[in-house]
Simulated assay, not measured.
Amino acid sequence: MKTKELILVALFAALTAIGAFLKINIGYIPFTLQFFFCALSGVLLGAKLGALSQIIYVTIGLFGLPVFSNGGGIGYVFKPSFGFIIGFIFSAYIIGILSNKNNKFFTLFIAQLLGLIVLYIFGSIYMYAIMNFYIGKAFSIINIIKVAVMPFIGVDIIKIFLVSLIGTKIRPIIQKTV
């Protein structure tokens, strides 16, 4: 990897961590800016580097640095929201693949929307498993969707819109330098 790529990957891992601290607690999952930086990493860095930035973010959190919205450490895997954190990796990768070298607003928007759907699916399934099989609290898929998806759709669409605007302006510059 080039030095610039290493710097950008580290930067987006750090930005995702910062996004975790910009939060509003509302229940099992807080409102944060993590998805904003995850999507931006996929759009600006592409599939491999965007996913790598999220892998680094998850790894440093699992090693104990308090970079997740409620801390860090290996025990975080037992939290109902951890599936969304793992989902950032897949979301960034999907966004990077689907927006591959295309700087059009609509393409970036749709790529992120599909990445968000992947994130919601991954996070919801994980939350369902943790709630029902580890915590022992009966939660249906409908309840998971009510708690972990519905409150966030509107805000996440706004994030996608903003990342699409930013991506159309900044992506051509980054593609020339990386």
Rank of each mutant, 00 (worst) to 15 (best):
I141D: 15
S81D: 09
F35P: 00
R171M: 05
F78R: 10
G73D: 08
F37C: 00
F63R: 07
A129M: 14
L113G: 06
S91C: 09
L8W: 01
K169C: 04
I97M: 15
V163T: 10
A14N: 11
Y57I: 10
Q34R: 01
Y76R: 07
G27E: 05
N132C: 12
L116H: 07
A20K: 01
F106T: 11
I160T: 04
F21Y: 12
M1T: 08
V43Q: 03
A20G: 06
A51C: 09
M127P: 12
F122G: 05
I89E: 05
F152I: 10
G83E: 11
I141M: 15
F139G: 12
F37P: 01
Y134H: 11
I144Q: 04
M131I: 09
K176G: 02
M127D: 11
F36Q: 07
P30I: 00
N102A: 08
M127V: 05
I94Q: 03
P151Q: 15
P172C: 01
I174L: 08
L62S: 10
I144Y: 14
N143H: 14
I94D: 04
L113W: 06
K159T: 08
Q175I: 03
L49H: 10
F21K: 14
G73M: 13
K169E: 04
A92C: 03
G72I: 08
I145Y: 12
L113T: 05
K146R: 13
G42H: 01
I97L: 12
G83V: 07
I117C: 07
F105D: 02
I56V: 14
N70H: 13
I174N: 01
A14Q: 00
V118R: 08
I135Q: 15
F152P: 01
T168H: 05
N25F: 13
I94F: 04
F63S: 11
L52M: 14
I142F: 15
I26Q: 05
I158R: 06
L165E: 11
T177Y: 07
S81L: 03
K104Q: 10
F68S: 11
G115Q: 07
F105W: 10
P151L: 06
L52E: 08
I170K: 02
K176P: 06
G123S: 13
G19S: 09
I86K: 05
I121Y: 02
Y126D: 12
L33W: 02
S140N: 13
M131F: 10
T16Q: 02
F152M: 11
I135C: 12
G83Y: 03
F21N: 10
G71R: 05
T32R: 04
I174R: 07
F21P: 08
T3H: 06
I174T: 00
G50S: 08
Q175D: 04
L44M: 09
K23R: 11
G46W: 00
R171Q: 03
L44I: 01
K4A: 08
G123M: 14
G50I: 01
N102Y: 01
L113C: 04
T32K: 04
I145R: 13
L45V: 00
S140W: 08
K159D: 05
A92D: 02
L40M: 13
